[in-house]
């Protein structure tokens, strides 16, 4: 009995250790395969284009719509409060900075967790069920690198671009609300380009590079970890979304903190 308890405790610690170590091992695997990207034919262009289409181009409508509405909602809420003290023109500042710094990048990341992270996890999980992962391995191809890098690159390209779409849509949303709340279009636009600077814009967009990496890694990791059955694939996709959202929000907090050190 005591021995069994002992066993259980030790196995608990072993699994806990494995759970912490596993993602790190996974990241190590991916990073160690980085040089293979520069090998001849080491990169799968076609796959990358597929994901660029899936996670980037096809996400434009939803990203634009959500960010537009986000900007409009922000504008309404800000205007309602600022109207009390007669400072409606600062709605422009609030919407502009919020969208550029947070909502643009964050909304894009959130949409991508839904679209990309779950898709990655499900895809890799299914490949595992079909023994495609094993096939890759026995072909002498490292599946982690082979499957992760095209996705990663596609995400690293598409998320910043999507964030730009989101930024533009968000500001447009604020502008629409502003024009219906006695801030003329010209005044809104003039104020927007006066207060917003390219550094804020670029730093906001740069955030999405971190988000893209986290979402891709989380999605792929959950796919690789999923158990090899239909339910396992479903669970893997779910946990990929949950893990990505968690990581994105934590990373956003950390980045915001880091940005505050350099004054943004």
């Amino acid at each position: 009995m005591a021995a069994e308890n002992n066993n259980r405790i030790s196995s608990f610690f072993r699994t806990a250790g494995v759970q912490i170590a596993e993602p790190v091992v996974f990241i190590g695997k991916v990073v160690s395969q980085f040089p293979s990207l520069f090998r001849k034919r080491g990169f799968r262009r076609k796959e990358m284009l597929y994901y660029l289409d899936l996670c980037g181009a096809k996400s434009i409508p939803v990203v634009t719509l959500i960010c537009f509405l986000m900007g409009a909602v922000l504008g309404i809420q800000a205007a309602l409060q600022m109207r009390k003290v007669g400072t409606e023109i600062f709605v422009v500042d609030l919407v502009g900075f919020s969208v550029l710094k947070e909502f643009g990048p964050l909304m894009v990341a959130m949409i991508s967790t839904g679209r990309a992270a779950s898709a990655f996890a499900a895809e890799i999980g299914t490949m595992k069920v079909n023994e495609e992962i094993s096939a890759l391995e026995t072909m002498g191809i490292d599946p982690a690198a082979y499957l992760v890098y095209p996705k990663l690159l596609a995400m690293l390209i598409s998320l910043p671009l999507l964030a730009v779409f989101g930024d533009a849509a968000g500001i447009a949303g604020g502008m629409l609300v502003g024009s219906s709340l006695n801030i003329p279009f010209q005044a809104y636009w003039a104020r927007t380009i006066a207060v917003l600077d390219q550094m804020t814009f670029l730093l906001g967009v740069a955030k999405t590079l971190v988000f893209a990496t986290l979402i891709t890694l989380a999605g792929c990791y959950c796919g690789f970890r999923a158990s090899s059955d239909a339910q396992g694939v479903g669970r893997g996709a779910t946990s990929a979304v949950v893990l990505s959202i968690f990581l994105v929000v934590v990373a956003d907090a950390v980045i915001t903190l880091l940005y505050s050190f350099i004054g943004y």
Binding site: N130, E132, T138
Partner: peptide
């Protein structure tokens, strides 16, 4: 080395394990 060894044999999986993409 393992990857090198692996290139010298072929494996046929139960379902074929063809890459769906």
């Amino acid at each position: 080395e393992r990857r090198l060894i692996m290139r010298h044999f072929g494996v046929t999986y139960q379902g074929g394990a063809l890459f769906g993409s």
